[in-house]
């Protein structure tokens, strides 16, 4: 995730400099812009589904992985929230513990979302299938990069130890994961029920 580069000398290390209010404001603003950018392709895909396939939902589409993935992502999100809470108290082992679980559930969610897209039930040459697969695939790719970000955050907290001066990385990971959760729920509801 984004890191500070204020007037300090150590421009190349994240999480090792204390953040001023202005720095934090900048990081939050930058992250917001980034998430706006990330939301655009999802909107495009949702729009395209109605253009190409209308409101049709293929009856054979696999239901259970989507529901299970939602639960997994929710659990993952709850654990990143717990991570953020630990970060407020600078409880580093607590962050790592929470992230172990969060990373596990996020991985499960990635696999689960991949199942209905790639288990071969839907014909990619049908109108519903040709929008369903790219949309689910995009969410999965987003989630995969979020997952790498979670791994990085965990590893950073573990390795940098008491050299950490700010926990923005932990908060940011939490925000991104919840953003992904919202994207996923919107996509899921739209593709399966609307």
């Amino acid at each position: 995730m984004a890191a500070s580069s204020n007037q300090s000398n150590d421009v190349l290390y994240p999480m090792q400099t204390p953040l001023s209010r202005a720095d934090l404001f900048k990081l939050k603003g930058g992250l917001t812009l980034f998430l706006i950018g990330l939301a655009v392709p999802i909107l495009l895909l949702l729009e395209m589904r109605y253009v190409v396939a209308g409101g049709y939902v293929a009856p054979q589409v696999t239901q259970w992985p989507a529901i299970a993935a939602t639960v997994a992502m929710l659990l993952s999100g709850l654990f990143t929230v717990a991570g953020s809470k630990s970060a407020k108290k600078a409880n580093r082992p607590g962050i790592v513990r929470s992230y172990n679980w969060a990373i596990l559930f996020a991985l499960i969610a990635i696999i689960l979302i991949g199942i209905p897209a790639f288990n071969g039930v839907l014909d990619p040459v049908s109108h519903y299938g040709e929008t369903f697969i790219p949309t689910m695939g995009t969410i999965d790719v987003y989630l995969f990069f979020t997952w790498i970000g979670m791994l990085a955050t965990r590893s950073r907290v573990k390795r940098l130890g008491n050299k950490i001066e700010n926990y923005w990385g932990v908060y940011a990971t939490n925000i991104v994961l919840w953003f992904m959760f919202v994207c996923w729920v919107v996509t899921w509801v739209q593709l399966y029920y609307l």
Binding site: I36, V40, P41, L44, P124, E130, I133, P134
Partner: peptide, 22 residues
């Protein structure tokens, strides 16, 4: 920030339309 993600997604769809093909 608004339009580049839009066209990137479009190009991915077009790429899939080429190689899958959709």
């Amino acid at each position: 920030i608004i339009w580049i993600p839009e066209i990137m997604m479009t190009f991915i769809l077009a790429l899939l339309a080429k190689i899958v093909p959709l």
